[in-house]
Amino acid sequence: MTAAAAGSVRVERVVTSGTFSLDGETFDVDNNVWLIGDDTEVLVVDAAHDAPAILSAVAGRRVVAVVCTHGHDDHIGAAVALAEATGAPVLLHPAEQELWRTVHPDRKPDAELADGMRLSVADAEVRVLHTPGHTWGSCSLYVPSLGAVFTGDTLFHGGPGATGRSYSDAPTIVASIRDRLLTLPDDTVVHTGHGAHTTVAAERPHVPTA
């Protein structure tokens, strides 16, 4: 687990391993699970693969919510187990319901994410940005006080996330990144769903202009 501090509120990363399955193919993947919070409470972003590992990182703190950036199985696999262990609600954009049901057919998310929604954890405000393209309901989470945005699989170190599979569209993801993410301050740290972090300024040259 790694952590970056900013006042009393900080970002912590847990890397979990498992598989991603879609369109009849399965791949081994490592996922970034993000905890935003302080010594008392945290918000979990993308409960991937391994609920016990995430619970270990939570370390007894109150979980305000389990927020899913999108509904691919590698990002939501541990969401229900984590919610049941902590009593926290699961939040997901309604356009992800079909993907969610393939993994959790007997349990719905507790609340819907929506563009412009504000969440609170510790002393931080978390702003929900609807950034479709990787999937139709993909969302990013912007935390102004931390100078950070959590992009799931929408924007990576090296450019836009994958499209070309079910529920995705390349022009849509480019528009989302240009209109919703590249408009953030250049020094905003981009915490991704997989791999290394980056910044808005670093990714600007890697995003097509149209």
Score class of each variant (00 low, 15 high):
residue 181 L to K: 06
residue 83 A to D: 07
residue 189 V to K: 02
residue 135 T to E: 13
residue 196 A to F: 10
residue 59 A to F: 01
residue 128 V to E: 14
residue 195 G to L: 08
residue 49 H to T: 05
residue 17 S to I: 12
residue 177 I to D: 01
residue 187 D to Y: 00
residue 203 E to W: 04
residue 107 R to V: 06
residue 98 E to P: 11
residue 142 Y to W: 15
residue 185 P to T: 00
residue 184 L to F: 10
residue 152 G to K: 14
residue 110 D to R: 06
residue 139 C to R: 06
residue 162 A to S: 14
residue 16 T to Q: 02
residue 115 D to Y: 04
residue 173 I to V: 15
residue 63 V to D: 07
residue 59 A to C: 06
residue 122 A to T: 13
residue 47 A to F: 04
residue 191 H to C: 13
residue 5 A to R: 15
residue 80 V to P: 01
residue 111 A to R: 11
residue 161 G to S: 13
residue 152 G to H: 11
residue 148 A to W: 02
residue 101 R to A: 13
residue 44 V to N: 08
residue 51 A to S: 11
residue 54 I to Y: 03
residue 100 W to Q: 08
residue 206 H to Q: 11
residue 93 H to L: 09
residue 2 T to W: 14
residue 63 V to A: 04
residue 117 M to W: 08
residue 88 A to Q: 01
residue 167 Y to A: 10
residue 85 A to C: 01
residue 90 V to A: 10
residue 33 V to S: 08
residue 120 S to I: 11
residue 105 P to K: 02
residue 137 G to Q: 09
residue 124 A to G: 07
residue 148 A to N: 03
residue 55 L to M: 05
residue 118 R to T: 15
residue 21 S to Q: 14
residue 54 I to G: 00
residue 137 G to L: 11
residue 82 L to C: 03
residue 3 A to L: 13
residue 207 V to I: 14
residue 33 V to L: 13
residue 152 G to S: 12
residue 195 G to K: 03
residue 204 R to C: 04
residue 155 L to P: 12
residue 5 A to H: 14
residue 186 D to H: 02
residue 170 A to H: 13
residue 104 H to W: 02
residue 181 L to I: 09
residue 16 T to N: 03
residue 113 L to N: 02
residue 160 P to Q: 09
residue 61 R to T: 05
residue 48 A to C: 15
residue 119 L to M: 14
residue 76 I to C: 04
residue 74 D to L: 04
residue 23 D to G: 14
residue 80 V to N: 03
residue 200 V to K: 00
residue 156 F to S: 09
residue 66 V to W: 03
residue 162 A to Q: 14
residue 192 T to V: 10
residue 37 G to E: 12
residue 58 V to F: 00
residue 17 S to M: 13
residue 88 A to T: 09
residue 94 P to N: 06
residue 11 V to M: 14
residue 78 A to D: 02
residue 175 A to I: 00
residue 26 T to C: 06
residue 67 V to S: 05
residue 9 V to I: 07
residue 96 E to R: 00
residue 150 F to Q: 08
residue 82 L to W: 01
residue 1 M to T: 14
residue 42 V to R: 01
residue 176 S to Q: 02
residue 160 P to K: 05
residue 179 D to L: 04
residue 144 P to D: 06
residue 89 P to C: 12
residue 206 H to S: 09
residue 71 G to K: 00
residue 141 L to P: 03
residue 161 G to E: 13
residue 98 E to K: 15
residue 209 T to D: 15
residue 160 P to M: 10
residue 145 S to Q: 15
residue 53 A to L: 12
residue 200 V to W: 02
residue 159 G to L: 10
residue 161 G to K: 03
residue 114 A to Q: 14
residue 3 A to S: 14
residue 173 I to R: 02
residue 71 G to S: 07
residue 47 A to V: 12
residue 3 A to R: 15
residue 129 L to Q: 09
residue 62 R to F: 03
residue 100 W to P: 11
residue 16 T to G: 05
residue 132 P to N: 10
residue 137 G to F: 06
residue 105 P to A: 01
residue 71 G to M: 04
residue 103 V to Y: 01
residue 62 R to K: 11
residue 110 D to H: 12
residue 39 D to S: 15
residue 131 T to A: 09
residue 151 T to Q: 07
residue 13 R to I: 07
residue 142 Y to V: 13
residue 178 R to N: 01
residue 118 R to N: 11
residue 194 H to W: 06
residue 172 T to D: 05
residue 172 T to V: 12
residue 147 G to V: 06
residue 106 D to M: 00
residue 187 D to L: 10
residue 89 P to L: 08
residue 169 D to Y: 08
residue 201 A to I: 08
residue 181 L to Q: 05
residue 94 P to F: 08
